[in-house]
Design a protein around this nucleic acid. Structure first.
Length: 311
DNA sequence: AAAGGACACAACCGCAAAGTT
DNA sequence: TAACTTTGCGGTTGTGTCCTT
């Protein structure tokens, strides 16, 4: 059968029926024989894919990922990387394609949020209301003006969120991270915000100890999956919050407060400790205690920490 | 009401591993 | 053991639907 006889595109109900009968008779194998026998004008590959992704019994077709499934994917992706088939084995009724699409969609969403924040610093964002509502309800924070592009590039993001600064706060307003990106003098260009965030890929230029030029406290982890809320502080401790953005879901933007982790607390195995961490504002802050210069009422808007059982 | 953007989902493609002859 | 075929996987693209402007 020539290639011109090979049919592509959406499957018809009749084709599905033929495929079902074949599988019922011979089992989910010999996919190529379906075409060689003249049953369907589809490649064996196409038949297998159709069976695996749509016709296989017990698939959760048309059902959105539950919070639990999302949590599982996030956890397993961090563990296995983009091993979708492997991850799918932990999710009954889900295919590797389902997991892949879910993750891809999520990544695009995050990338878009960051990119629009960077590219439209002064205009109100054309943010779809279905996501990231929190991005719109906080005023932008003006970053430092830099004299040259080279200077801009030479500065690290850590000056916006240095760990020493973060350690001095009860919470950190994650909502403002995109707004930091939204400020006029970013130390990187929009193109550097890659759509793909690989948690295993370290990026350069973190670790500067230049004092934070503005007090944009506190960092809320509004839109985080509970698991991510636990990971975030540690990620930030690792001074690579962009990696963290690769793991959060914009659809999950909400208003969840998460306590921050002291620098002595690191590693996922300590995540259970996070809930017990609450630093007092009046703790002496040295050597980076610029916070002393802030008016005391600036902390008035800090919400009390929620019970961990509400996460 | 129309246009455009965002999203979810389906399907294809290229490549590599595994299996068969 | 080499050549060929089949299967499986991950990346990418196309399409329809919904929502916002």
């Amino acid at each position: 059968m020539s290639d011109s006889m090979i049919k592509k595109g959406p499957w018809k109900a009749e084709e599905d029926e033929v495929l079902r009968k074949h599988v019922k008779k011979y089992g989910p194998r010999d996919w190529s024989s379906i075409r060689s026998k003249g049953l369907l004008q589809r490649t064996g590959k196409s038949c297998r894919l159709r069976w695996v992704n749509k016709l296989r019994p017990n698939l959760k077709s048309g059902v959105k990922f539950s919070a639990e499934e999302e949590r599982t994917v996030i956890e397993l992706q961090a563990q296995f990387g983009n091993k979708w088939a492997r991850i799918a084995t932990y999710l009954p009724g889900r295919t590797d394609n389902d997991v892949k699409n879910f993750w891809s969609s999520r990544q695009k969403k995050l990338a878009r949020i960051l990119r629009t924040s960077v590219q439209q610093p002064s205009k109100p964002q054309k943010t779809n209301n279905r996501e990231a509502p929190a991005l719109q309800k906080h005023p932008s924070v003006e970053g430092p003006k830099l004299s040259s592009l080279a200077e801009e590039r030479s500065l690290s993001i850590s000056q916006y969120c240095p760990s020493s600064y973060m350690n001095n706060c009860n919470t950190i307003n994650m909502v403002q991270l995109p707004e930091l990106l939204n400020s006029t003098s970013l130390p990187f260009e929009p193109d550097l915000l890659q759509p793909e965030f690989n948690p295993y890929e370290k990026r350069a230029c973190f670790g500067s100890q230049i004092p934070l030029p503005f007090p944009q406290i506190p960092l809320q982890t509004d839109f985080l999956h509970p698991l991510e809320s636990q990971i975030l502080p540690m990620k930030l401790e690792e001074s690579d919050f962009l990696d963290f953005f690769g793991q959060l879901s914009a659809s999950e933007i909400g208003n969840v407060q998460v306590p921050f982790v002291p620098s002595s607390c690191s590693g996922p195995e300590r995540s259970s400790d996070i809930i017990s961490v609450k630093r007092e504002i009046d703790i002496p802050l040295t050597p980076d205690s610029f916070i002393d210069d802030f008016p005391m009422d600036m902390f008035d808007h800090i919400d009390p920490l929620p019970s961990p059982f509400n996460w």
